[in-house]
Every structure is written in C-alpha cells, then in structure tokens.
Design a protein around this nucleic acid. Sequence first.
RNA 1: GGUCCUGUGGCCGAGCGGCUAGGCAAAGGUCUGCAAAACCUUGUACAGCGGUUCGAAUCCGCUCGGGACCUCCA
Length: 486
Amino acid sequence: MELKDLKIYNSLSGEKVKFIPVQEGFVGLYVCGPTVYSNVHLGNCRSFISFDLVYRYLTYIGYKVRYVRNITDVGHLVDDADDGEDKISKKARLEQLEPMEIVQQYTLDFHKVMDQFNSIPPNIEPTATGHIIEQIEMILTILDNGFAYESNGSVYFDVEKYNETHPYGELSGRKIEDLISNTRDLDGQDEKRAPLDFALWKNASDEHLMKWPSPWGLGFPGWHLECSAMSTKYLGEEFDIHGGGMDLKFPHHECEIAQGTASNGKAPVRYWMHGNMLTLNGKKMSKSTGNSILPEELFSGVNDFMEKPFDPMVVRFFMMQAHYRSTLDFTSDALLAAEKGYDKLAEAIKTSTNLKISKESSLNIQDLVASFYAAMNDDFNAPILVANLFEAVKFINSVKDGSQTVSKEDLELLQTEMNAFVQDVLGLRQGNPSGDDKLSPVMDLVLDLRQEARENKDWTTSDKIRDGLATAGIVVKDSKEGTSWN
RNA sequence: GGUCCUGUGGCCGAGCGGCUAGGCAAAGGUCUGCAAAACCUUGUACAGCGGUUCGAAUCCGCUCGGGACCUCCA
C-alpha cells in the first residue's frame, strides 16, 4: 500500500491534508501524556487509545515511528490563589507522602490501565522532572531571543512581543485582542507585564516541595514548557505529528508553538491532531458532579452507570466505532451493543480458519481488503474500517453457509489482512478461549457425552449438559460440522 | 459574556450537495430435536423553521438542545 495515500486532519489549517513526513519513511509523533496525581480516567484513556491507533497504523503501513509521550510529574498550579502550591505537593501533604511517591503510584496505575487496553507503550516516555536542565536551557534561549523576561525569580513569556512577529492564537483561532479583553483579573498577576503572558519558570515559595535550583533561584518549570523541551530533545526542532485532547489546544498547545518558535525560530509541529471528548450518559465527565467513571470500575462492573462489567477489549472496540474527532457517549446500552458486535467479529475470525476452499471467489477480496486501507488512510477512520470488517464477517459466514465461495489465495489474503487490521491496527487483542490446555480435553469429553445423548435422542441429558455449561459461561453451538463452544 | 464545535432511524454511530455505511435492538423467513449461532428479507432517519439550488441530512440564516475552550484538564 502506498504510504503517500494517508490523509490527516491538521488542526492548524482545519483541513484534511496529505501526510508528508519531514524525513521520508520516518515519523516523529509526540502526544501529551497524563499528569500523574490521580487515577487516569476514561476520558484520558480514549485520547491515548486514539493515538495508539495512529501509532499502530503508521507502523503497519511501514513507517518507522518514534513515539514520545511524556509523564507530567512536576504538577501544575491548583489555581492562582494558592501561592504556587502545585497539585502533586498538595496531595502529598494531604496523604503524608513524598511527592514522588504519588508520582510513582499513579504512573504505575496509568501503565496498568493502558496495558489492559492493549495500548502499546511509547518508544520514549520522558518525565518533566527528568528534564529540568533541558527546560532551563530552553528558557535561556527564549530569553536570549528576547521573547521572555525575568520578574522576581520567575520568567514569563512575552506574548505581545511574540505576537508582533508571529501569530499567537493561530492554532485555536483566537485573536490576541479578544484574549486580552477576555482575561480575568487574577491574583499573583502583578509579576507579569501583561495578563496573557505565561510562566516559563516559577519562583518557589518555602512550602513548595518540588523545586530546583536555576539561574533565577529555587523554582519549578512552567506549565507548558516540558512538552516543548522534551519534544525538541527527542524529535527535533521540527517534527511531524503532535497529538492531544481538544482541551489542550488552548492554551497549552498554543504556548508550545510560541515556545518552540521563540527558541528555534520555526514552528515545531507540522501536523496537529486533536482527539475529542467523552461523555457519560450524554453529559461531560466530571469528577465534581459525580458523572465520572474509572476504567477499573468499568472493567469490574462496580459503578453506578453500567449494567454489567465490560472487558477492556470491548471498551476499546466501542471506541473504535467512533471517529477520534467526534465526541463519544458512554451508555450501558451502547456498550452492550458493542459487546455483541465484538463477539461476532471475533467469532468470524475463528470461523475463517476453517472454511471450505473453492476454485474461485464469489466476491472481490482484493477490493474488500483495499477498503480497509482506504478507511484508515482517510484520517484514521476506524468506524469505516469496522464497517468494512463486518462486510468481511458477512462474507466469511456466507462461505460457511455455502452461499458464497472463496479461493485459497483469497482466503489467505483475507485472513492475513483481517488479523492484521483487527489485532495490529485496531489493537483488539484476540483472546484464545480454547487456549486453556486443561479445559480443552475436558470440553471434548463433555461434548462427546452430549453428542452420544443426542444420537440416542436423550434430549433431557443433552440439554442438561448445555444448560449446565451455559451457567458456567460456556456457550455451546451445534452446526452441521459439529459442536463448538466458547 | 466571548470564541468554536455539534444535534442522524428504538439505541450507538459513519456520511457532509444527487448514488440513501456499519453494529445493536425489532419483525418475518431458512436451517435445527429444541436452543444458540449463521444466512435471507423488512423498516427510508437526518432537531425545528425559513432560504440557496434542477436537487440538501449535507450549503446559508434564525430558533431550540448538547459540548469544548477562555482557569489545571485527554
């Protein structure tokens, strides 16, 4: 498949455009990672899973991808009224823990959840605290270039100065005049020359736990700087794709563009990609209103929203049925529907390994397979891919029923590509239900006994076995070729 | 208040000027000891009201919902 066919919606231009990497055959991908001061919630996960899909597809079509996703462990300000105490140190004091203990705890939780979702770890997962020196160096460069100023041990980015030569607000479609007129009066703004200016380095108060020495005294890096410093370090001054949630567009990503441009002289990112939000029962997820659910709660079924527990792969499949730029609503009914669809897909993949071969195919398999690529090449349109995969499901089942035929070569092609798109691209880990080596022989025996009963028309016994297995969660299906179970 | 996105059949969700995805649910049928599964058939949806057009779910305006950002946030 031709790599050049891929189109990506670039948030910067607001258009779907052909993807052309800086260096042919290679892709630099940076995604804003989590702030590890609490458990990742489902909305965070959707965003990371969206970019996992991007990473997987780019890799699948042959790009060598360097995927960088940071861990924000410095913490951000809780609000402007609490004199610079950051989120992580606040929680630490509450729980009587070292800040880095909090970081460790929630980083582990994050990794565990992403693993449950079968999300591939990034190639580099840098931490903000591990790149204080790089951040300080970047601040020095921005100061040298005249786009920042020091004030009482803090350093601020001079937005208006920057705007004289570069369009601040180009990503989020904002005009600097509007921003100025909309800025609220906040505490602690007196150090800044203008309310729009943002911190590159903040002077730390005595109570502040996480702080580092710098040319401006003890302090900590500003909210937006880590991504600029780390993406530059690992992907270069100009790289291909930067991803994140919609809510990061302004000010976070806008500031990244400004910082990168102010220090390197050119815009840091070619393609900006933004994933959309998640809603729960039609309303936005919010911890404060209680309209929120943790991945573990979804998997365990211990929550107030869902009728039953859902497998992480079902949740992932559900997410894949919506485009990453659309909002997605989580409801019990929707998950239930996704679960059935997912089972049907998985079942058909198993069926495909045991089909009767014919001389010719009654369907153009190459076209079908091409439709998988076409869907993904169109700005990673996973829902279309899923729809096309279900066309294949229908075909496979029809071949099984004898109403369609498939040739050896076509079946091999279809199997290879379906497996690749389901497992490698969509990241849907196919479990092996019959892979339990101890259970398989037992099931063979039990089904053998049931078959004997059926042959003797002893329906009482055969149904007893079937119902009993159903209670244990094993579904028995009879067909002409024999009895299967899962 | 400002900036922007969005509203699709019972449910979830693609499409985004003509050729009317897909999944789930529903109804009828085939198969089957019964069931399950599978297959076949059926259902003409695009918030409301105007407008542009030969033609609109798709473009424009207004109204009414939902959401994002403007402050840490995926």
